[in-house]
Design a protein around this nucleic acid. Structure first.
Length: 457
RNA sequence: GAAGAUGUAGCUCAGUUGGUUAGAGCGCUAGAUUGUGGUUCUUGAGGUCGUGGGUUCGAUCCCCAUCAUUUUCCCCA
């Protein structure tokens, strides 16, 4: 083996036929629900202009963007002393395009570019891969799919309520029964920060609080202390984030804590409104819980935030989203509020695999393989092949004249449920033998009988 | 960027306190069965033990370096 072993880039994966069938099932399930809720499809280019992406994900995010080296002589126009400026300043000189980092920013770009043609409120779904130059880990890849659905151009809390419904329908389609949707509101978090006199530092608080279930009360306290919060402030905060129980009770406690914070009270009433809307939508008891420790790292959220967890599997969140009031502002279109939800296909796949929730997907393979003993049988089989396909039965004729055993093994490996056998006797009778590979039963059929038999299910 | 783990057959992994021909299961080949897969039995093929160097009479094993893979921290889906 003197040739080099082939490999794929770190953090990327091949999806063989079996995995693809399962992935397709997940993706199609999500897509069908998106459509049902009135979302329209959108696809954007794999690459965006680098300046569209930079500065949108924070300093660290910029580092994680896959840059594309300019074609041709990319060093043209770069003076030799400019290398001393460092790679950060050099990058835009040799790279003007990059792979998309998420689907939200390209969507915002699209909305701004097409603002005159779009009918607002605009609901779009988008299912495409994204790339991050991260260090791969368990459940984390450099190339992965996102399934986003967003509504922009309306403040209505109906969108939030619908997102809850949408999540419920997706999980029902995927047969995942045991899950919970956590909801919180950035305005409440803002109010809490304001209540302890730390207005403007909600991002710091969010990043720390978001880890509560991961690193515990102690860890969060340490992180906040290191970020300049006082122990007395933290002592005020912690009881709030440890509130559990019924959402109504949490809300009642919150109302008194935040009574002086206008923004905080607004957040509370938004949450209440969402619960109310769901009731009117006949969703009596949604798996929805108010969780004040839910913060989500992304800084552009301004209102409701969501996260979905599968309860029986330890894998983190499988879906998340929220409302952002000014995503298009960075591209020069302020005042367009949006709210969105994103499903993590790879994690959903893992959850379903672990719980054994995939239905049998064998119907996606060939229905019948036509086998034969010699060239004469091959020619006879061609007619059957064509006729079967005309009636929309997925059929194959084994392409090479080989031992029948070989052909059967092929059918078995491919899990083809029926094998047609053509020998001299069949040809004389103008028939074909159809064997059911599951039961082992075999009988001779005419073309019409074959079609009837194979069309059954 | 930091720390750890692992590299042995196509795959999953044994193994040798350093000693002649490095093993298993699965997969693959061929046959038992020249008109029949999945089960069973038999057969055969397949390895520079990640790469380079060192110690040694002798290294897959010990030491050093290097590369690759992977996990955790940070951050994220």
């Amino acid at each position: 083996m003197s040739v080099s072993k082939p490999s794929i880039p770190k953090g990327t994966r091949d999806f063989g036929p079996e995995k693809m069938m399962k992935r397709t099932f997940v993706l199609e399930s999500i897509k069908s629900v998106f459509k049902k809720f009135g979302f329209l499809p959108l696809e954007t280019p794999t690459m965006e202009n680098l300046n569209v992406l930079t500065g949108k994900y924070g300093d660290e995010g910029d580092q994680l963007i896959f840059k594309i080296l300019n074609s041709g002589n990319y060093l043209e126009g770069v003076a030799s002393d400019q290398i001393d400026l460092g790679y950060k300043k050099m990058t835009p000189m040799i790279s003007e395009k990059a792979l998309r980092y998420d689907l939200t920013v390209p969507f915002a770009r699209y909305v701004v570019m097409n603002r005159n043609d779009i009918a607002f409120p605009f609901k779009r779904y988008q299912i495409q891969p994204v790339w991050r130059a991260d260090r791969p880990q368990k459940g984390r890849y450099r190339e992965f799919y996102q399934c986003d659905a967003d509504v922009v151009g309306t403040d209505s809390l109906l969108c939030e309520a619908e997102i809850v419904m949408l999540i419920m329908e997706v999980f029902a389609k995927l047969n995942i029964a045991d899950y919970s949707i956590k909801i919180n509101n950035r305005k409440i978090l803002q109010g809490i920060v304001a209540a302890i006199g730390r207005l403007g530092e909600e991002t710091t608080l969010c990043v720390a609080i978001d880890k509560l279930d991961k690193i515990g009360k102690q860890g969060v306290t340490e992180e906040l202390l290191s970020k300049g919060f006082a122990q007395t402030e933290i002592d005020q905060l912690m009881p709030i984030f440890e509130l559990t129980g019924k959402s109504e009770e949490i809300i009642a406690t919150l109302k008194s804590f935040l009574q002086s914070s206008e923004i905080g009270l607004k957040g509370i009433s938004e949450v209440e409104e969402i619960f109310l809307l769901l009731e009117k939508l006949h969703i009596a008891s949604p798996p929805l819980v108010l969780d004040l420790s839910l913060a989500r790292g992304l800084s552009y959220y301004t209102g409701a935030i969501f996260e979905v967890k599968a309860n029986q599997v330890q894998i983190g969140s499988v879906s998340g989203g929220g409302r952002y009031d000014n995503l298009t502002g960075i591209f020069g279109l302020p005042g367009v509020s949006g709210v969105g939800i994103s499903f993590g296909v790879d994690r959903l796949y893992d959850v379903m695999e672990e719980l054994g929730l995939f239905p049998s997907l064998t119907h996606q393979t060939t229905k019948v393989l036509i086998t034969y003993f010699d060239k004469k049988g091959f020619n006879y089989g061609l007619n059957f092949l064509a006729k079967l396909r005309q009636t929309n039965i997925s059929a194959e004729l084994y392409p090479d004249v080989v031992k029948i055993k070989k052909q059967f093994e092929y059918a078995d490996k491919k899990k083809i449920p029926y094998v047609a056998v053509i020998g001299d006797e069949e040809m004389q009778e103008n028939k074909i033998s159809i064997k059911n590979m599951l039961t082992g039963v075999q009988e001779r059929c005419t073309l019409e009988e074959t079609i009837l038999k194979l069309s059954e299910h």
